[in-house]
Nucleic acid binder design. Structure first.
Lengths: 209, 209
DNA sequence: GGACCCTGACTGAACGACCAGTCAACTCGC
DNA sequence: GCGAGTTGACTGGTCGTTCAGTCAGGGTCC
């Protein structure tokens, strides 16, 4: 009866399609994404895509946030396991630099962000979703700062943790755009160094690499 | 004989179409921009658009950078006329906040930036163009800093002006995204205050509003 | 100055590619 | 055999692009 127990529950088609869609979006771009492409990735006929999603538009909207959501959950879980605030902060920076870690598809994450932003310009629902996702991420940074102040790793007399996290997050967004777009001057390593440096000055963390 | 003395040189059609195109792009978004729309804005038949531009794609690529180029030239001219570095810096901040000044279509400028970024992801030519435009803008900020240090308005013992401008520019990009997307917390005024505050701390300018 | 031609901006109908969405038919596990 | 899952051919609509033709202005020749 529940939606979870399907007759063929080997694969969760819904999720599988969302993953395929976000892959296609990162590869081809939102505007160039066709239902056929998504069907191809799933090894399935195009009709089935519309069987699971009311329209292409809805599917794409869901897919955009889906990947980011997964990424956040994974990261939050990972951070919670780290004992040192410095380590957490360093990891946050690492994960925010597009193309720094080869094992992650961080470029892809950022490419999806760009598409989310463009869509949010004219789709109020997406704008709300984007704000939620952004706020959540900035909150994570703020919590790392608070955690470090609590453990004594960071000096506690600095500015408000939320403000700090917001400014720091904004700078990382701006830098990430440059890195992502293959700026000749702003390489992943340079962005990492800058972020580490600013973190030291602003937060007082001497984050080790 | 010269190309300038046309039979009907009342209007520069080329430029007129570029302006119409960037207007349509800001209104409808790059992906939703049709040749018919651009023709309508010009009060002209769709055939004429393709008479002046080899393809829709080329036209859109040119239109994206055209508006930004105009904006830069206008701004650079304006800044040069201001005697005080503080005034220049304050103006740069003002002009970077989407929706702060009602008389400018700054939201539009930023919306075009988003489209440029998305396109630059997969179009190397656009990526180069974007880097040039970005570098030029950051250079303007760096020059303001150097100018202020020269005139003694800013303390001269700070970090490298180029590095400073780059970090400051990146933060403004990140903040502008939030403002532009109607973030409930990040209002234009708040962004302006943050930028002014950071400028004071980083550059040492006590920029008056 | 009038008849003629030429140029090139401009039109809009028509073509054709592309693609989202539909649907009748088929499969297969229960 | 019922129904959820799946197929893929098909439809209808939407554009980008083409192109044959119109028209206005200006130059040229007598």
């Amino acid at each position: 009866m529940s939606t979870k127990t399907r007759q063929k529950p080997q694969r969760d088609r819904h999720q599988e399609i969302l993953e395929a869609a976000s892959r296609v979006i990162t590869d081809r771009g939102l505007a160039e994404t066709r239902i056929q492409d998504i069907a191809d990735v799933c090894g399935v006929s195009p009709g089935l895509i519309l069987y699971y999603f009311e329209s292409k538009d809805r599917l794409l909207a869901e897919a955009l946030t889906y990947a980011n959501d997964q990424f956040y959950l994974r990261t939050a879980r990972e951070l919670r396991k780290m004992p040192a605030a410095k380590e957490r902060l360093s990891r946050v920076i690492e994960l925010s630099v597009p193309g720094l870690l080869p094992e992650y598809d961080l470029l892809d994450e950022w490419a999806l962000w760009l598409e989310i932003w463009v869509r949010a310009l004219r789709d109020p629902e997406m704008a709300k979703e984007r704000e939620m996702l952004d706020r959540r991420w900035v909150q994570s940074i703020a919590e790392v700062i608070r955690y470090g102040r609590q453990t004594g790793e960071f000096p506690s007399e600095g500015p408000d943790a939320d403000d700090l996290a917001m400014q720091f997050g904004a700078m990382m967004d701006g830098l990430a755009i440059q890195v992502m777009l293959n700026d000749t001057v702003m390489t992943p390593q340079r962005m990492f160094d800058i972020c580490t440096d600013v973190a030291t000055r602003l937060i007082g963390s001497t984050a080790d690499v």
